[in-house]
Design a protein around this nucleic acid. Structure first.
Lengths: 224, 224
DNA sequence: CTTCTATAATGAGGATTTTCATACCTGTAA
DNA sequence: TTACAGGTATGAAAATCCTCATTATAGAAG
């Protein structure tokens, strides 16, 4: 995954960079508006981290440029002053997320994941994970080219986990998502176990690797 | 129902007012920021219609005042320029809905209904319609004090219809709501008929008047 | 008023979802 | 290591939901 970090403060840039490298992201940098725009015009990034306060102008210009070029790069705005106005303006012009300084690097990481994932979902109707194929449009799942008949809830669950690929999804989140209910405390979430079991079973029986991992005490995780 | 109309253009004010009177709402008016704030401080309204362009300042100040006073009045912003920025800012500061000029009065009316209803839902856990009692908190329905056992979908349907009391809800809207699915064209909405039938049956068998009316060719309506 | 067509109601059967009881597993602490 | 507690898996039963074929009804047209 390729990330562009647009940020003029050396210190922040470095700390983000070092963290990103442990996550095995490829990072590039820009510390001015002009360098940033140069890079954006000539490259595609999975995600762009954009500080709004730059020495040669407001970072929103970068955002405008990206959208004007009709680029699909995900953009997360990083703002020091945390002003609501910037946030609104940013999300409006087309940022995908917004993060106010200071933030935890793990939080940033989670946002990047989620933005990149969302982008992929939006643009693609088909997803492949080795022998596993998920067709969003027709709501069909295939393993090794052969269709696996999933029930609606099973499909929903799979998609929900895939949507947070490599991240653990709590049982409660799953319960809420599947039942469509509010954040009420669920009195019983056994149905999550049941659907997880059935989904796993159908996939493995079709010859799919065990991509759905149980995370003891927390929930489940989709990981290729 | 008491409505406050904050609008400086005489013509618009009158047309809204006359329509609202046919709907049997009680209307009050304010044509400046100062009058508006005076009224808001001293009265409670079910719904406030707020034009942003006022002679003595931006209407968002009214909104800020309402929220600062921790008032529960519903607020619908009416804006001439239809700028997205105003919309977002407004909804963010705490408006409940937003309507760009020009609009149909029936549309406005529907929005008022929906805002007022939503507010009521938010604050109330219990709703009574004569012999019918709906407990949001425990998701229980009683008729003449006796519990009626509804399935989840039946309860959902009832709530959805009650939430748009006196307005017709299309079968498609119901189908989407019940299935939790996106705006995909449903290939089959027979299940709406089924749930509607079962819900009606359970209620009438429990001795509840037929508050759920079928609107031929459109959908259903909850009406006391 | 009668007929016609589209829409809605109905009942039953099959599919799915949820619950429940029980067995199994994981991590923790003695 | 072993026992323990809390968490998870499982199969089967119960409840619910969806589909389908059929019947009934509403509104339109003649």
């Amino acid at each position: 995954m390729k990330i562009l970090i647009i940020e003029d403060e050396e210190e922040i840039r470095e700390s983000i960079a070092s963290y990103m490298q442990t996550e095995k992201y490829v990072c590039e940098f820009a510390d001015t508006l002009n360098i940033a725009i140069d890079k954006i015009v000539t490259h595609d990034y999975d995600c762009i981290l954009l500080d709004l306060m730059l020495p040669d102008g407001n970072g929103l210009k970068v955002l405008e440029k990206i959208r004007a070029l009709n680029k699909q790069d995900g953009v997360i705005i990083i703002s020091a002053n945390g002003s609501l106005e910037d946030k609104i303006k940013g999300l409006n012009i087309g940022a995908d997320d917004y993060l106010a300084k200071p933030f935890h690097l793990s939080e940033l990481n989670a946002r990047i994941y989620s933005v990149v994932r969302r982008k992929k979902f939006d643009s693609k109707n088909l997803m492949y994970y080795n022998e596993l194929e998920i067709n969003l449009q027709f709501k069909v799942v295939k393993v090794k080219g052969k269709e696996v008949l999933l029930t609606r809830k099973e499909f929903d669950l799979l998609l929900f986990l895939v949507g947070s690929k490599d991240m653990v999804v709590s049982k409660n989140a799953i319960a809420e998502h599947l039942s469509g209910d509010m954040a009420d405390m669920m009195d019983n979430i056994d149905f999550v176990y049941a659907h997880a079991k059935n989904l796993k079973k159908k996939l493995t029986e079709a010859g799919c690797n065990n991509y759905i991992k149980t995370v003891y005490g927390v929930g489940y995780k989709f990981q290729v």
